[in-house]
Simulated scan of single mutants.
Amino acid sequence: MLLVWALLAALLPGAPVAAQPPAPPALHLPTPTGAYPVGTTWLHLTDAARSDPWRPESRRELMVSLWYPAVAAPGARAPYTTAAVSARIIAAEGLPLPPDLLATVRTSARRDVPVRPVARGWPLVVLSPGFSLSRESLTGLAEDLASRGYVVAGVDHPYEAWGVEFPDGRVADCLACELSVPDTAARLIEGRAADVAFLLDRLTGPRPAWQGARFIDPTRIGMVGHSIGGASATHALRADRRIDAAVNLDGTLFLPIPAGAVTKPFLLIGSDRPTDASWLRDWPGLTGWKRWLTVTGSGHLSFTDRPILGAQLGMDPGVIPADRQMLVTREYVAAFLDQHLRHRPRPLLAAPNEAYPEVLFCDAAA
């Protein structure tokens, strides 16, 4: 697995060392493309029935960001992350940046503004980040989906990210990062599926943890994950009957999928690298609607916010411009969710599209 911001280790190669490095530029995410203003709030949840898989002496706690279609109302822009989490990410990668830099990223969502009412309820999408990443890494995708009419729940899985900060100031450091992913894959994936099941209980059950939950349609739920989060989305699609469709963004399927076990809609989007053997192994056994797409010129982190922010810091994003990488992710994930949660056919998923020549329909998936 690639580490968070690994590509930034080569930031501004060859630049002379200055006594006082210049201040980094202001960082921002692209504006959401949908029709609705975006609101957000943070939830702290404790599963009293489950021990933490990394600290068995404690109950499992989650931090969750909710993004949603909002009523246009004044409100402060939401922080991208906290200063403590920013400092841990930057320190973990050894980056020559101010520790609180990621806390300064400009977002589009307004904090704690009212949810826009809707008669049927908004479809719900759960996001699970990659290994060592935290929930802010998928904010650009989350804000865009919310602007298109989805409630989006981004989950932090404590002790699996460089830092997860709780409201009382405690920070869960990455205990799992001391271990190898292949050796702990089943533990990671099954634990994340349990996290998501608990979150769905708290958002769609009889005693919801969020007052805006009355505007969620519990009959239309999708999950999208990046890297190990994608593998977890695959497993959760099998394990939880409430999840109707799932997207795996470049995640190795460490837990094999038994033939015929996944009959629900499933989208694989891979980076431009050698074909993942686990995808080849499990593809024939997926018996529902399915697509396998590869984005030419992309990398493992292309489906996150990292290329956008890295480019603003002067890093070369690679073959595909950073804003283009985010556009492709936003468009194809939204098309999949529209088609399978809203039952609106999206031609983008039917065949290669000349507007997106970098997106290939994999021959192995034909």
Rank of each mutant, 00 (worst) to 15 (best):
L2H: 14
L3T: 12
W5L: 15
A6E: 14
L7P: 04
L11I: 01
Q20A: 15
A23Y: 06
A23C: 00
P30T: 04
T31L: 06
P32G: 02
T33H: 03
P37A: 07
V38I: 04
L45F: 11
A49T: 15
R55V: 15
S58T: 13
P69Y: 09
A78R: 03
A78L: 06
Y80V: 01
T81I: 00
S86R: 08
S86G: 09
I89K: 00
L95V: 02
L101H: 01
V105R: 00
T107P: 00
V113L: 04
V118E: 13
G121C: 13
V125D: 08
L127A: 02
G130Q: 07
S132Y: 11
S132C: 12
S134Q: 14
A142Y: 02
E143N: 04
L145F: 12
Y150M: 09
V155W: 03
D156Y: 04
D156C: 03
E160L: 08
W162A: 13
W162G: 10
C174W: 13
D183Q: 15
E190F: 11
E190R: 15
R192P: 14
R192F: 12
R192L: 12
A193Y: 13
D195S: 10
D201S: 12
R202A: 05
T204E: 09
P208R: 01
A209I: 05
A209G: 03
T219I: 07
I221W: 00
G222D: 06
V224R: 05
G225D: 10
A239R: 15
D240T: 14
D244V: 09
L253K: 03
L255G: 02
I257V: 15
G260M: 08
P265Y: 01
W279L: 13
D282E: 07
D282P: 06
G288N: 05
P307N: 06
L313S: 07
M326T: 01
T329N: 02
R330A: 01
R330I: 03
Q339E: 15
L341E: 05
L341H: 01
H343M: 04
H343G: 02
P345Y: 09
L348W: 05
A351C: 06
